[in-house]
């Protein structure tokens, strides 16, 4: 039971282009299939807290981290990670002395570009946006380093391939984005109905969506767990992949690999129906590193 209206979605709709036939259809992928080895999993975390205020200006302390875990013979090992801690504030509303005092903390100062007028909630939201951006950046950094270190390894990134613009120059073809949230819908009408009512073990045909500023990515939905008796999005993930020549042909194979990732179950995490275990392990590792931020 809910009591408040949920916050408005940032981008509820997007556009899509048919890639693998028209209209979108449900395809039985044929069950799980072992994923190739090695395979790497990348995720990031972000934490922030209002440490205090100088006058009305919120001083937000942020922490972001990302890590890549590589799986070989079933064992996950950390192969790359990074973390940053910083202070975010609307710097234009602080005096030079106040900035200097903040810099003495040893943490980097970031500007959240707050408006001229103070707003206790909006200022924090803007700072949070900065934190989120820093998290995306550190994820991209880790992803890039992993790609360079071992271009043959398949990478599974938690979330959409938001940084695909930055990665396109690295020849990233073996990278998959695993999207668990479905805030933005790229399909409409019967296509959307097919996607949201997929039976377990089925995927949609591949379609394309715009990602970042310029690039497009191939994407398709995959139902990991039956949704009947649950809500519509139960067990539903969306997979993103750079638009490679094999992108469509390999959609079924990739889907079968991801079906095999249903085990081990990531329960008791509330997102267990969409969160694959290795990604959860990246989160666990990052949370352990975060220490006091946990």
């Amino acid at each position: 039971m809910l009591t408040h209206a949920p916050p408005p979605l940032g981008a509820p709709f997007g556009s899509a282009d048919y890639v693998e036939g028209r209209p979108v259809r449900a395809i039985d992928v044929g069950g799980a299939m072992p994923a190739p080895e090695p395979m790497a999993f990348i995720d990031g975390i972000q934490r922030y807290a209002v440490e205090g205020r100088i006058g009305l200006v919120p001083i937000v302390r942020g922490y972001v981290a990302a890590a890549a875990l590589r799986r070989e013979r079933g064992e996950l090992r950390v192969i790359d990670s990074g973390a940053q801690e910083f202070i975010v504030a609307p710097l234009r509303r602080l005096t030079a002395d106040q900035r200097t005092a903040l810099e003495r903390s040893g943490l980097r100062l970031l500007d959240c570009m707050g408006a001229e007028r103070s707003h206790p909630i909006l200022d924090v939201q803007l700072a949070a946006k900065v934190v989120e951006h820093r998290r995306e950046r550190i994820e991209i950094d880790v992803t890039r380093r992993t790609l360079v270190a071992d271009p043959e390894t398949w990478l599974v990134v938690d979330g959409s391939l938001a940084g695909i613009d930055d990665l396109s120059g690295d020849g990233a073809t073996r990278i998959l984005g695993l999207v668990k949230s479905h805030e933005t819908q790229f399909l409409d009408g019967p296509d959307l109905e097919v996607a949201l009512t997929l039976p377990a073990g089925h995927r949609t045909s591949v379609f394309a969506r715009t990602a970042g500023q310029r690039a497009t990515v191939y994407t398709w939905y995959l139902r990991l767990w039956p949704w009947e008796d649950h809500e519509l999005l139960h067990g539903l993930v969306r997979i993103e992949r750079p638009p490679t020549p094999d992108g469509v042909d390999e959609a079924t194979s990739v889907s079968r690999w991801l079906l095999s990732e249903r085990a081990p179950l990531s329960a008791p995490d509330s997102r267990w129906d969409r969160l694959v275990y290795p990604i959860q392990q990246v989160e666990t590792y990052l949370r352990a590193l975060a220490g006091g931020w946990w």
Binding site: A32, P34, A35, R71, G74, E75, L76, S260, E261, R262, A263, P264, L265, A267, P268, Y277, P278, Q281, T284
Partner: peptide
């Protein structure tokens, strides 16, 4: 391990102990 309940293993193995092994060993 981080297995919260033995039932979770049963669910993913669909009740078959001889079923496919999980690709990742639990921590």
């Amino acid at each position: 391990s981080d297995l919260a309940s033995p039932l979770h293993e049963v669910v993913v193995a669909q009740g078959d102990p001889a079923g496919d092994r999980a690709p990742t060993r639990r921590t």
